[in-house]
Design a protein around this nucleic acid. Structure first.
Length: 123
RNA sequence: CGAGCUGGCCAGGCAGUCGCUGCCCGGUUGCUGGUUUUGCGCAGUUUUGCGUGAAUUCGGCACCAGGUGGAGGAAAGUCCGGGCUCCAAAGAGCAAAGCGCCAGGUAACGCCUGGGGGGUGAAAGCCCACGGAAAGUGCAGCAGAGAGUAGACCGCCUAAGCGCAUAGCGCCGGUAAGGGUGAAAGGGUGCGGUAAGAGCGCACCGCGCGACUGGUAACAGUUCGUGGCAUGGUAAACCCCGCUUGGAGCAAGGCCAAAUAGGGACCCUUCGGUGUGGCUCGCACUGGGUCCGGGUAGGCUGCUUGAGGUUGAUAGUGAUAUCAAUCCCAGAUGAAUGACUGUCCCAGACAGAACCCGGCUUAUCGGCCAGCUCGAUUU
RNA sequence: GGCUGGAUGGCAGAGUGGUCAUGCAGCGGACUGCAACUCCGUUAACGCCGGUUCGAUUCCGACUCCAGCCU
């Protein structure tokens, strides 16, 4: 298993997985077009789930594009986010950004999330 | 060469690194299920049964390595038509809905092909929900005299008859040629005719009906006969005629199954009730007896070999069909087909499969090929 | 993914083949010392594009948008 892999065990799979993150979200970082919720995973795995509603991003091509970009970014930064269950929610207007903008934004969000986590750990 | 029309095709390429997923092949790897042989223990009269250990071999899952495949012409809208599944073995009648020139194609269609008719364009071509209004009912505001058995507002006429009493006026009337209204005013043009007019008569055009000819038919015809001429519009108003349609949908349906609640399956009976698609019939359930399984979260399946693609031959004007050879070409399930870097060019539009096909419609950068029309020029 | 329903002034909400009610809101006026209430008057709409019809908000087709249901 390589360090940058992205298999089934790295994803949130069921409705109950999503519910646990939504109900007890310990971390919450956002930008205008993206909201990220996260929670410590009890078994120490790193997993991500995507919520990109049709209401916010109308075209299927755009939804697929955003999912791919997010997964790719997550895949590259998963060492940083070790042991978290993460849910990424898209807001309106995200489909208007190009690939570079989305990738940069996600990178900043990962950093924010990491800082928030370290801050909590010290307290 | 320019302007235009029709049909078909393509949908950024290449290299490297990282990543996702289906299938195939392999593994001194891990977990797990079975086959065969055999050791030991227990039971038994024996065949043997149970427990346990070893070897053997066949799978399944995970992981690793390699190979190979991985969005569209519209995948879209869900507007039609089918397959498939369940509802009863999907049946009968009514109601309701859809379609509508003719012939053919097709599994089927509201689609396609060919033909006819109408419209449009200089032409190639393009467009058309294109049955019936002499079966019946309804509708047409306003305007207008009159809106469907036509109709005297203005106008025209005053021959015949009557009155005044005389180139005239009035009464009784006549008249659809002209004006005006309207979306629409009941064949058109000309001549005759007349008081003025009128298919009143005639000629030509148009129209209806019948015959004949051509065509499978729709329909057509410098054809013949006949009728003075009707049958205004609206059926995407009700309707009539002909044809078609049972309803739901893969979140259909089937299987395995934590939790939770009390029902569930089979047999017998048919008064009432409930349900199945709008109603009726019909059918199923509810009632009594016997026996224990049923099922939410979740998982598996349905799930991709098909009215299939490619090439060729044959039949046909064509849509298409038949035959032969050959190929296997996405199958995901929080949902794969991507990201980054470099490079080239004509600088990449619209846009992402979700059970599967056939169409239609809508979105769309740019390019290629073939055929046709018109114009210009040269030989 | 599939299946339904809808779109009428700023808001709510009827309606029908012939220039669309009604209420609230807005504006102007009357009443009042000023307001409220009340009364009178007035502005403003059929989602968009085609077709059928003499005429479409209504009938038919396509498009856009908004709700709801099935897991």
């Amino acid at each position: 298993m390589t360090e940058l892999g992205f298999g089934k065990e790295r994803r949130l799979l069921t409705a109950t997985d999503y519910q646990s993150v939504f109900n007890g979200a310990s971390f919450r970082v956002s930008r205008r077009q993206i909201l990220i919720l996260a929670n410590e995973n009890p078994s120490g795995k790193t997993r991500i789930g995507l919520v990109i509603a049709k209401k916010h991003v109308r075209l299927a091509v755009q939804r697929n594009r955003l999912k791919r970009l997010t997964r790719e970014s997550f895949r590259h930064h998963q060492q940083l986010l070790n042991g978290l269950d993460i849910v990424m929610l898209a807001r309106g207007g995200l489909d208007k950004l190009d690939n570079d903008a989305v990738t940069n934004m996600l990178e900043q969000l990962w950093q924010d999330l990491c800082k928030r986590r370290n801050h909590n750990a010290r307290q």
